[in-house]
Amino acid sequence: MSGSVFVLNAGSSSLKYQLVDPDSGEVHVAGIVERIGEEGSDVPDHEAAVRRALDAIEGRPEPTACGHRVVHGGERFDGPALIDDDVEAAIDELSALAPLHNPANLEGIRAARAVLPDIPHVAVFDTAFHRTIPAEAATYAIPVDLASRYGVRRYGFHGTSHRYVSRAAAEFLGIPLERSKVIVLHLGNGASACAVDGGRSIETSMGMTPLEGLVMGTRSGDIDPAALFHLHRQAGFGFEELERMLNRDSGLKGLTGRGDMRDVQAAAADGDAAAEAALAVYRHRIRKYIGAYLAQLGGLDALVFTAGVGENNSLLRRRTLAGLEHLGLQVDPDRNEVPSHEARRISPDGAPVAVLVVPTNEELEIARQTAAVTEDR
């Protein structure tokens, strides 16, 4: 099957869309419909949002398939899935693991299937790329009956980004994918690291939820669970307060009052000691994961920065890798400062490990996976 893919990413009150050629990567149209269902909005529901998006692509190539981003595929989905009523039901059941995301993703799916009943729809799951993580990396050391009954394990997220970027890195270097060893640092407001061996995820920093791992804009990343028990006993925090604090009021925001890396870095440049300390914590966490993943991979062809912070913040890249020359990680100061929207090398020629910046393209990855599922229809 060939043709353009209509890529949808539905949130609770927004719908991002692109019309993408999966072969060339050309984006015919891209946009967002916002304020879905909000008071005073002229977009009452997701079906109206899909129709609004279709109006925006009128006159462009007709989509031959629709690809949907779905955050959580649990243990059931290890790749993209052609959507039918059973797949819809499974996504709904998995909402227990992603209550903030899967229900909204499902709203978009149902709306699009109603508006576009004559083309195939495919679910592409953030978690699917990480289903190759071995049991010893996915297992938490809690009672096995509880873990099994309630689905407590490492699932990992940002999978479409890690998959796209790790493959693009191998292609950039001219290394066969099946022999490549890559660490991807997806650094945006949400952030995660991933060790990719031969094109397969073998470890990732996010866990059962996107809260674990690196320091993020408003999420804490790794924390001793007993710290929460302490806050409950000593400060009277309840379950919902702790959950909100860790997800919305922690990370860079918790350390500095600012959740945007650009604001934190500007404050540090102006001499704000709290901002500089927060950046040190942020970098330290990344370096710890780099070391751990080097050990797991047993070698490294490339370390790759991607996503908004990773792609655009040359100072962060340089300072994060400073002092890691003994691991083969070096940054060429001139290459690092050159802005570009293309994949590029920022390490010196002859460095033992290639340090790359590779812009992520999750929409293209979704389009390609959708086309692969539907090409024989």
Rank of each mutant, 00 (worst) to 15 (best):
H72L: 08
A112Q: 02
I91E: 02
A111W: 02
V7R: 04
G159Q: 02
A191R: 02
G198N: 01
A227H: 04
S2N: 14
R35Q: 13
Y150P: 14
P44I: 02
L97S: 07
D334P: 04
G298E: 04
A277Y: 00
N189T: 08
G156D: 06
D197A: 10
P143A: 05
D332A: 05
L356G: 04
A112N: 11
R52P: 09
V358S: 05
L100N: 10
D23E: 14
V331L: 12
S95H: 03
G298L: 12
A278L: 12
H101N: 12
L327M: 10
H326P: 02
R283T: 07
R149G: 03
R113D: 04
L252S: 09
A48G: 10
E34N: 00
A302Y: 03
L54Y: 01
R318Q: 15
D260V: 13
A137M: 11
N312E: 14
L100Y: 01
L100H: 05
A268C: 12
L231H: 00
V124N: 05
D376S: 11
H158E: 11
F237M: 15
P103N: 05
E34H: 00
A372T: 11
A111C: 09
D249L: 14
E276D: 14
A367S: 05
D55H: 01
L211V: 10
L364A: 07
R258Y: 03
G74Y: 10
S347P: 11
E58W: 00
D55R: 06
I32G: 02
A292D: 12
A111T: 02
G254T: 13
